[in-house]
């Protein structure tokens, strides 16, 4: 009887010893919560080192402002505008083509601003120089940097966009920061998102 007790206690001792390192390892892995790990981070990843985070097949321009990490790039806009440059038609002579506006610009539907605040063409486009946009202080703004123009009214969205809470990065989280322009997602003449059918559907949870 004594022998059994002795051997069983020995067994449990051995078992306990075997389990102990495991327990310590477990406690070690639990020590760092997310916030603790964030606070304890002393080395930074040079995200340019991440493989294949460099090439982007799209045209970009350097943004004319800075975010918390320095400079960044935005997707270029001018290449996307089919009839750019505008001064090909809109030069110092008046356009006299019959139904010209109908043929060239009737796809433009303005649904931007409500009631008496509804925008007219010349609120954003420069009357004299059609190749650029113009803000309320008379500064000429390049089409590639339209965020400067949108940000006059939508300054909260612009602040979030510069920081990264509005809009999105192009394809990569690592590497040089390249973000989408306002016009990459919003139609500037009718910027609100449309209602549509969802891309797919989900089955009921209890099936």
């Amino acid at each position: 009887m004594k022998k059994i007790i002795l051997s069983s206690s020995l067994f449990s001792l051995v078992l306990g010893l075997m389990l102990m390192p495991g327990q310590y390892a477990w406690a070690g892995s639990r020590a760092g919560s997310v916030s603790e790990r964030i606070l304890a981070a002393d080395h930074q990843l040079d995200s340019m080192q991440v493989e294949s985070a460099h090439q982007l097949p799209v045209k970009t321009v350097e943004a004319q402002m800075k975010y918390q990490g320095g400079t960044f790039k935005v997707l270029a806009r001018k290449d996307e505008i089919g009839r750019y440059r505008c001064s090909v038609c809109h030069n110092d002579k008046p356009v006299r083509v019959k139904n010209g506006a109908l043929f060239t610009h009737s796809d433009v539907v303005i649904n931007h601003g409500q009631g008496e605040n509804e925008l007219a063409c010349v609120d954003c486009h420069d009357k004299k120089d059609r190749d650029v946009l113009i803000d309320k202080q008379g500064r000429k703004i390049d089409y590639d940097h339209s965020y400067q123009l949108c940000g006059q009214c939508h300054f909260r969205q612009k602040r979030d966009w510069v920081g990264g809470a509005h809009g999105k990065r192009e394809s990569y989280w690592a590497g040089e920061r390249v973000v989408k322009n306002c016009t990459s997602c919003h139609n500037p003449h009718s910027p609100a998102f449309k209602t549509k059918m969802p891309e797919t559907y989900s089955l009921p949870l209890d099936e």
Binding site: L45, V50, S52, G69, K168, S171, W173, C185, F193
Partner: peptide
């Protein structure tokens, strides 16, 4: 490989923000 997850890449509204929590300059 440095890419965004497929869901964040596909989102047309920019509702999905993904990044490195240990990088103080990241969007997240």
């Amino acid at each position: 490989k440095g890419k965004l997850p497929a869901c964040a890449n596909a989102c047309p509204t920019g509702s999905r923000v993904f990044g490195n929590l240990l990088d103080p300059n990241s969007e997240i």
